[in-house]
Every structure is written in structure tokens, then in C-alpha cells.
Design a protein around this nucleic acid. Structure first.
Length: 307
RNA sequence: GGGGAGAUACCAAAGUGGCCAACUGGGGCAGACUGUAAAUCUGCUGUCGAAUGACUUCGUAGGUUCGAAUCCUGCUCUCCCCA
């Protein structure tokens, strides 16, 4: 029996949610979220979690299963996803994944290598070093510990450098040693469906959606979460701008304007991320029939699969 | 009616004789990114060109000068003050 994971992806605000519910109903299956911010239950408004009546139509996984206090990562998601999908594939031939977090989707597809867990204190140590001594200092460390990776990293991106350093130090092997870049086999087929549309149209949808979030209480939600502002989960479009407003740094209108702009930029980065993924078949969100047909053709059983 | 200030690229705003196709910010575009990824980071943004470069710009029409966004004059428009 062929098992298939259909991944519906696309930039924020394009209309993944509505379509995913329709598709899930059509194929009588469940939805697995791959939206790294909808995981956090306290952040429902600002991350456009579907309303209850929508969620009730189809069973959803990985929505609100974490608290903003929890540590999470792409590799944790990979593990959680494999466990859940394994169970779900026992009763479904087709599962639907939808969300906008490119790295998390890649993780689910087996595109990130296994790298040992490291103690967070090592990361903290290098983060502190970076803040105290600057980029040059941690760059020098990396040049010594992993000269191979040093040649390819973005040397201005402290997060990249610290990630490599924490691996080098806690495993005793260079970070580049773990980067096999082969991809791991999955026990199911994968169909990637990308949603995209004219940029102007997308931007106007994003702007409108931000207004709707404000109307549904984003400000109040952000106020509730203000005390958690230092948590990584709150380093998110919609919240960080509100926090600046609460600080008195910018006006409410300015905050809303920035949320719109940053959401647009986020959408752009998402599109860039997927632009190099040749496995994605692109559609306009209005092409519902074409998308369904595409899924049906791709999942039709006979014949050797070219995946 | 009188006096004053100003018009700069998509927007805002520097520049006040050569180092100016023009600082900077915004907006936009493009890209990188294998463990907090809605994060983090980079480049471009007058036109043509892959590029050396070529060409056209600083309200507008003239003028001064080897050379003008920068100086002078007329015109148009905007703003402020006095009537």
C-alpha cells in the first residue's frame, strides 16, 4: 500500500488554511501543521490559528501543542512528526501537511542531518562571548575548530557561527562532519504543492489579515504575553512590534504598520527559500480542482514511482 | 498686495562649484540559511549592460564657469508671516 504525505506550502497569508481543510475533507484525512509558531498555544491570534469551527471539521496535529516556555527545534519536530505520521498512516493512506516553516518541512522530509543534541549551556557560553567580544572573536574560534565550515558560512551571521561552535565543542568533531547532505529516506511518498500568487495581491491579503488580527485581539494577546517577551517564541512578527508599542517606543499605528511590513518581508523570504526546491509543483490558491487532480494523478497506484 | 522659505530619484531627506548617479532612512527587489527559522544574515535599488563602462538626471527656461544639484535671471508651483 502506498502511503503519501501531501505538503501544502506557501507564503504567509496566501490561503493555506482554508484550502487545507477542503483538501483534508476531500481526501478524508487529517492535517499536520508545519507552522513553527502555531505550535505555541498562547499565540493563537497572532499566528492566525484557524478558528475553532474550522479546527473541528478536521483533526489537526501540532497546533498549540507547546507553550511559549518550551524549547523546540526543527529536529524535535522531525521526531514528533515521524511518530505521529507513523500512527496516522496506520489508518490513512494520505496525510496532509500544511504550514509555512521551510526548515521544518525540510526536516519532515528527511533533509536535515542527524546531529547530536548539545547542552544549552554551550550555546549560552558562545552567545555571551559574541555579545562581550563581538563577531571576530567567535569567528576566530570557528576558524580553528572547523576550518571547512568556516569557508562556507556566512561570517556575518552570528547564529550560524554559534550553532557550528556549539556542535564542535560539545561533540569534539567539526560541525561540517555531520553535514552529509544526502537526505534520509522516508517510508512514504511526498507530494509538494506550493501556493503562490501575484505579489501585489499577496501583499494586500497580508495587510488585510493583519487588520483582522488586530480586530480579533492581537493587542490583548500580546499584552498577556508581554512578560514572556524574552522567550524565543515571542520573537515573532506581530508580537515584537506590539512590545515596542507597549514600551512607548512607537505608536500603535506604527506598530501595526510594521507588523504588515514584516509579514510581507517574511512572505518574501519564504518564497526565496522554496524557490530552489524543484520538487514543488506550484499553483494559484484558486486552482482547487487542478490541485486535487494533481494529487489524484500522483497518488494513482500502478506504475513505478519516480520519487 | 508686501516679506520670507522651499522645489533633489518611488517616498522622506542630506548635499550648497569639481571627490555626485548624488549620504542616509523608509519602501521595494534579489539572495543566503541543516537545531530557538515568523529567527538570523547579505546584496541591489536613474536607464542600458554580465562587467569595464556608456547615456540621461536634482521644478522649468536661459545664463555665468574649464566644470553646476550647488552661483545668477525669468517663469511655474508649494509653504509660512504681514496685510
Amino acid at each position: 500500500m502506498n502511503k503519501t504525505l501531501v505538503i501544502l506550502l506557501g507564503p504567509t497569508g496566501i490561503g493555506k488554511t482554508d484550502l487545507s481543510i477542503e483538501l483534508a475533507l476531500r481526501f478524508k484525512t487529517e492535517i499536520i501543521s508545519s507552522d513553527s509558531r502555531q505550535f505555541f498555544r498562547e499565540m493563537a491570534v497572532g499566528t492566525a490559528v484557524p478558528p475553532l469551527e474550522q479546527l473541528e471539521k478536521v483533526k489537526h496535529h501540532f497546533i498549540g501543542h507547546l507553550s511559549v516556555n518550551d524549547y523546540y527545534s526543527a529536529s524535535k519536530f522531525e521526531k514528533d512528526f515521524l511518530q505521529v505520521s507513523k500512527d496516522l498512516f496506520k489508518v490513512h493512506d494520505l496525510l496532509l501537511m500544511t504550514g509555512g516553516s521551510g526548515l521544518y518541512i525540510d526536516a519532515a522530509c528527511g533533509k536535515i542531518d542527524n546531529i547530536p543534541d548539545v547542552d544549552s549551556s554551550v550555546r549560552d557560553k558562545y552567545l555571551r562571548k559574541f555579545m562581550d567580544e563581538g563577531l571576530e572573536s567567535i569567528r576566530t574560534d570557528l576558524r580553528l575548530l572547523d576550518p571547512v565550515y568556516y569557508r562556507t558560512v556566512d561570517l556575518k551571521n552570528y547564529k550560524r557561527i554559534i550553532r557550528a561552535l556549539e556542535i564542535c565543542e560539545s561533540t569534539g568533531k567539526p560541525y561540517s562532519h555531520y553535514l552529509k547532505k544526502k537526505g534520509k529516506k522516508r517510508a512514504f511518498n511526498i507530494i509538494k504543492i506550493g501556493l503562490n500568487m501575484d505579489r501585489r495581491e499577496l501583499y494586500s491579503r497580508i495587510n488585510d489579515r493583519v487588520d483582522r488580527m488586530i480586530a480579533s485581539g492581537l493587542e490583548e494577546e500580546a499584552r498577556e504575553l508581554f512578560r514572556y517577551r524574552d522567550k524565543n517564541a515571542l520573537n515573532t512578527v506581530g508580537y515584537k512590534e506590539m512590545f515596542r508599542y507597549f514600551d512607548g517606543e512607537i505608536s500603535r499605528d506604527k506598530a501595526i504598520e510594521l507588523i504588515k511590513r514584516n509579514s510581507r518581508r517574511y512572505a518574501r523570504r519564504q518564497i526565496t527559500w522554496w524557490s530552489r526546491d524543484k520538487e514543488i509543483k506550484w499553483f494559484h490558491p484558486g486552482e482547487k480542482k487542478e490541485i486535487i487532480r494533481h494529487i489524484e494523478i500522483e497518488t494513482r497506484d500502478p506504475g513505478p514511482k519516480t520519487q
